[in-house]
Design a protein around this nucleic acid. Structure first.
Lengths: 233, 233
DNA sequence: AAGTGGTCTAGACCACTGA
DNA sequence: CAGTGGTCTAGACCACTTT
């Protein structure tokens, strides 16, 4: 009957996965409770719990107290990607990294930036524009606004030597935020700085980060036209 | 000294997080071992382990046996997104879903598709093109190739009533795969089917999935020009 | 060889939520 | 209220690496 009965949570998870793939348990079905499964698999309930917890985290099953565990109906997949510091991204391609600061001054941002950073109409913010190069070819154009009411220390930093990207990542405590990707036609500034033909669409990623309720920074990155963002499923 | 000493792993995690944010432990530093932390926080080692495990999973710390736990240098962030079935995506917008099948036939794919699906030069595959609508407005254009050597059952399915997207998600067991996002200018077919002005760039997402070593399907989705893919950090 | 993280167990109590 | 998942504990053994 039962072959190799390893009791690792990975193994238990694999067995449960298979039952779902087999359609022993179909989407929407209630599957046995943790105690039952523990007995069935001959392991501790804790181990079953670990296996199920991870399956729930990736959206394979839905769990509710008292209601039990069901195979997820909507197999929406959760994908993940690594978003590294730009320097690391360039160095991972085995190219030499360098960046150029185009702008670094404090001014009142346009309305949609004020809104994003939740600043009032007359508040200033630090506007930073720079180009990041890989082996002397423009790689990413960065257009960033920093809320200097939250990040007061940045006024003292020499951003011509350390990029804002890098400084923030290394010095600003963990934040939550959002990250949005769109396709766009680059504006004149981007076309020029990135040495593009003006007809090529590029990926634009917008990121805004927070410390608790306080906004930190919002940044738009424009990549080379052929650039891909890659995810694992 | 110690205030509210909850021993939930979330609490322990929060305390550790804070020590990193405080720069009590700076990037690159070795932090105390699990036993030490357990004693320090007055909880079981298992609880510390759980807290640290989750921090490691999101890239905040790096852990190695014997070497110990270090605060991550490269705070590369892992972002996650939900990729739902197209129907669910439309219905989440509270719009009515419908789709139209444009093509559904078996033929020898172009070379790059053969390569992606790891098929031989004379092998046929099922080519499916369709448009997915939200309230009668084109929402996504789908260009899919299915490896009928892996998914033999699909020949029997009526794909005019159930979209391939939906059928695959609900019927093909779990796969691994890759997911790539690029910006592109849509081709003629896409422009026409999506009723676009031909100058607008759109997001293209390419996904290829596998069952073990066997390729299942590769699909390119073209979204409406203003469409955003959103991630949580 | 030794130290550190990784995991399993058995038992216990808690927290949520459906009936 | 009762059943299910969520978590904590204490102790044990294992597996991986660095020394």
């Amino acid at each position: 009957m039962s072959s190799a009965r390893s009791h690792t949570w990975q193994d238990i998870q694999e067995r449960i996965r298979r039952k779902i793939e087999d359609r022993t348990w179909s989407p929407g079905d209630l599957i046995p409770g943790e105690v039952a499964l523990a007995e069935q698999f001959g392991c501790a309930r804790t181990t079953v719990n670990r296996a199920l917890r991870e399956l729930a985290a990736t959206g394979v099953i839905d769990r509710k107290r008292k209601a039990g565990t069901r195979v997820a109906m909507n197999k929406s997949r959760r994908v993940t990607a690594e978003i590294p510091v730009i320097r690391a991204q360039v160095e991972a391609l085995e190219k030499e990294y360098r960046f150029e600061l185009l702008e670094n001054r404090s001014l009142v941002p346009p309305a949609y930036i004020l809104d994003t950073l939740r600043l009032k109409a007359d508040h200033k913010a630090l506007h930073i524009r720079s180009v990041h190069y890989a082996d002397d070819k423009p790689f990413i154009y960065e257009d960033r606004w920093i809320n200097t009411r939250t990040i007061t220390q940045i006024k003292k930093i020499d951003l011509t030597h350390t990029s804002a990207n890098e400084w923030l990542v290394e010095n600003v405590p963990f934040t939550c935020g959002e990250f949005v990707v769109v396709a766009c036609m680059p504006g004149k500034r981007v076309v020029k700085a990135m040495q593009l033909s003006s007809k090529e669409p590029v990926l634009e990623s917008r990121r805004t980060t927070w410390i608790g309720q306080k906004s930190v920074t919002t940044v738009a990155l424009y990549y080379q036209p052929d650039f891909q963002i890659r995810f694992d499923i």
